[in-house]
Amino acid sequence: MTFVFATNNENKVREIRSMLGDAFRIITLKEAGIDIDIPEPHDTLEANAREKSTVIHNMTGQNAFSEDTGLEIDALNGEPGVLSARYAGEQKNADDNIDLVLQRLEGQSDRRARFRTVISLIIDGKEHQFEGVAEGHILMERQGGKGFGYDPIFRPEGSSKSFAEMDLAEKNQYSHRGKAFRKLIEFLQQ
Rank of each mutant, 00 (worst) to 15 (best):
F3G: 07
F3D: 07
F3V: 09
T7R: 02
E10N: 14
N11R: 13
E15W: 07
S18C: 15
M19A: 12
L20M: 13
F24G: 00
F24A: 00
F24N: 00
R25F: 05
I26Y: 06
I27T: 06
T28C: 10
L29E: 01
K30C: 08
E31H: 12
D35F: 05
I36Q: 13
D37R: 05
I38W: 07
I38M: 06
P39G: 07
H42S: 12
D43R: 03
L45H: 03
E46S: 13
E46L: 14
A47I: 08
N48G: 09
N48A: 10
R50Y: 05
K52C: 02
K52M: 03
T54D: 01
V55K: 08
H57N: 06
N63D: 15
S66R: 02
S66N: 03
E67G: 01
D68F: 03
T69G: 08
G70F: 01
E72R: 15
D74A: 12
D74S: 11
A75N: 15
L76Q: 14
N77E: 15
G81L: 03
G81H: 07
V82T: 15
L83P: 00
A85P: 11
A85C: 12
A88Q: 07
Q91D: 14
K92N: 05
K92G: 00
N93S: 11
N93H: 09
A94Y: 15
A94V: 10
D95R: 06
D95W: 00
D96V: 13
N97V: 07
N97C: 12
I98N: 04
D99A: 13
L100E: 09
L102W: 11
Q103M: 15
Q103A: 15
R104W: 12
R104S: 11
R104C: 08
L105H: 07
S109V: 15
R111W: 11
A113V: 04
F115C: 06
R116M: 09
I119E: 01
I119K: 02
L121W: 01
I122K: 02
D124W: 08
D124G: 08
G125N: 12
E127L: 09
H128L: 11
E131W: 08
E131Y: 10
V133N: 08
A134E: 03
H137E: 09
H137S: 09
H137Q: 06
L139H: 04
M140T: 08
R142A: 02
Q143L: 13
G144P: 05
G145P: 00
G145Y: 04
G145A: 08
K146Q: 14
K146Y: 11
G147N: 05
F148C: 07
G149R: 01
G149P: 02
G149I: 02
D151Y: 03
P152D: 08
G158H: 04
G158V: 02
S159K: 00
F163V: 05
L168Y: 13
A169T: 14
A169K: 15
E170N: 09
K171D: 14
K171A: 10
N172M: 09
N172Y: 09
Q173D: 10
S175Q: 05
H176K: 13
G178A: 08
F181W: 06
R182S: 02
L184A: 06
I185R: 12
I185M: 12
E186S: 11
Q189A: 10
Q189T: 09
Q190V: 13
